[in-house]
Design a protein around this nucleic acid. Structure first.
Length: 506
RNA sequence: GGGCAAGUGGCGAAGUGGUAACGCAGCGGACUGCAAAUCCGCGAUGCACCGGUUCAAAUCCGGUCUUGCCCUCCA
């Protein structure tokens, strides 16, 4: 037993052992905040949030840090277009980021450090690297010299020679080697800038993650995560800076990288224009469904987004949610009194549930295999549905006792994946008119309706459901079917269960 | 050109040596007044292709083809 994880640094699946027992220190690269996030940006958020939740489930005390890049060319350019201060623009989109991330049930990090608030820490690193002779200055810019850092390329699995050979043309002439990267950039007019020994300027992109992760987690923390497009050069450079700075290794002990979201097999990205904004998707799809979709395959595989994928995800997810609803309907308001003996069947049921919990944990222990973990939940759900819907089901106190425990457990596993159903979608005011029309069509059917109709869509619907119940009791199936069909056209689906009629929105 | 992944039923996707999970879609049945939900059953004689190792391979080795990502800002 024990956790295993694929470590990009070693290119192997390894035992995941935290530096300090029962504590896990995690850093992930957060977004550059100049725009709304798209589905591809959302994937690492949800994945690393799930990893964090699972580690907490396993009893780890997790310290989770995720940065915001709020100094960057893209932000500066965008700010110019909108005639805004770059830092204000970044601040605005950090707010928008939280709206989407919160909706997707991504728990807030312990600290969300911003580059702009850690200039002194970064300058401190640049100075030390400069003193050590690993960095050099050229016209106000400071570069990191990759030749002076042994081990450059160890994360991305390339030798310096290979990379030099493949280096693109158009190399900046101020660099001594094409792969050298900027630590500190001389300021251009109108850009945010800070004082430094080399004049006014701003930090290079890679520097912030090294400086901030070390500040909040200490050198040699447990897990560093991000999208696999960050392996080179971003993470490679983070390692180079941090390890040259401290003169020790490793900067981070395990590197975890997620695969991309693709559209028609092509990477979803802003430059290709094939991206879907999370905010837009949330107009049509419940956040749990987006999250479910993102967790439906292993984190390291590419995830293809197509027209049918969220529809299928919704069906699958509803299956899981239905089981929880069923459990709730049986256990809600029931006293948990462990009295009476359990039947053989109920005992066997309880044991099978336990075996599926073990299956879930085994799946998640093995490199956070959420796809396999979900399969365990389906198995568990089928077991629960069958047990409760069985003709011979009798909710004795002893059975209720077991079901309360099972509910707790099932609930807990869904929560570990961040997949608890949200509040039932409300019947918005936009439904009132349609439902009212249906009610009014019954005017000539005698005393089916109360004298005055309510103005609340929910109350309106309740009346129709009651009318239909009465019709069914009289075996007036023509009317009851007519009502159900009419409501379906308005987007309200009715389902008759042994415990009454329930409704849901399409 | 170099580096890294991947190719499994109609679709999505697990499975890294012992004979193909799971979900969606489909079909048959049970339940239901009918639906829905739910349950049961059916579906790859085969895991890109060729060759090899082995008592045994989707799983290991070699080769071929195809696809994606990285080598430039990018989750």
């Amino acid at each position: 037993m024990g956790l295993k994880v694929y470590n990009t640094l070693s290119k192997h699946k390894e035992q995941l052992l935290s530096k300090v027992p029962q504590q896990m220190k995690i850093y992930t690269c957060g977004p550059t905040t100049y725009n709304y996030i798209h589905l591809g940006n959302a994937r690492p958020l949800v994945i690393f949030d799930t990893i964090r939740r699972y580690l907490e489930y396993k009893g780890y005390r997790v310290t989770y840090i995720q940065n915001f890049t709020d100094i960057d060319d893209k932000i500066i350019n965008r700010a110019k277009e909108e005639n805004m201060d770059p830092l204000d623009l970044a601040d605005k989109y950090i707010g928008e980021y939280f709206r989407d991330a919160d909706a997707l049930r991504v728990k807030r990090a312990d600290v969300h450090p911003r580059a702009s608030e850690h200039i002194p820490e970064m300058l401190e690193m640049v100075k030390k690297l400069y003193e050590k002779g690993v960095a050099y200055e050229e016209g106000g810019d400071v570069y990191f010299s990759v030749r002076n850092f042994r081990g450059y390329g160890k994360l991305s699995g390339r030798s310096l020679e290979e990379m030099m050979a493949g280096a693109r043309i158009g190399v900046d002439e101020r660099k001594r080697d094409p792969l050298d990267f900027v630590l500190w950039k001389a300021a251009k007019p109108g850009e945010p800038a800070w004082e430094s020994p080399w004049g006014m300027g701003r930090p290079g992109w890679h520097l912030e993650c090294s400086a901030m992760s070390i500040k909040y987690l200490g050198f040699s923390f447990d897990i560093h995560g991000g999208g696999s497009d960050l392996i080179f050069p971003h993470h490679e450079n983070e390692i180079a800076q941090a390890e040259a700075y401290t003169g020790s290794a490793p900067f981070a002990r395990y590197w975890i990288h997620n695969g991309f979201v693709t559209v028609d097999q092509e990477k979803m990205s802003k430059s290709l224009g094939n991206f879907f904004i999370v905010r837009d998707l949330l107009q049509e799809w419940a956040p749990e469904i987006l999250r479910f979709f993102l967790l439906s395959i292993h984190y390291s595989s590419p995830l293809d987004y197509g027209p049918g994928s969220l529809k299928s995800a919704r069906k699958s997810y509803n299956r899981l949610a239905n089981t929880l609803e069923l459990l709730d309907s049986i256990t809600d308001g029931k006293q948990d009194a462990a009295v009476g003996r359990l039947s053989k069947e109920a005992e066997a049921f309880r044991d099978r549930i336990a075996s599926y919990v073990a299956k879930f944990e085994k799946a998640m222990d093995d490199d956070f295999n959420t796809a396999l973990g979900l399969a365990a939940l389906y198995d568990m759900g089928r077991e629960i549905n069958a047990f409760i819907n069985n003709k011979d089901f009798v909710p004795t106190p002893a059975v209720i006792h077991v079901l309360i425990q099972v509910r707790q457990c099932y609930h807990n596993l869904l929560d570990t994946l961040g997949l608890l159903p949200g509040e039932k979608r409300e019947l918005g005011p936009e439904y009132l008119e349609g439902i009212r029309e249906i009610a009014l069509s019954l005017k000539d059917r005698g005393d089916l309706l109360p004298p005055s109709l309510p103005q609340e869509p929910q109350e309106m619907l309740d009346i129709l459901i009651k009318v239909r119940q009465e019709a069914r009791a009289r075996k007036d199936f023509q009317l009851s079917d007519q009502l159900r069909d009419a409501l379906k056209k308005e987007g309200v689906i009715l389902e008759d269960t042994p415990r009454g009629t329930r409704w849901r929105l399409v």
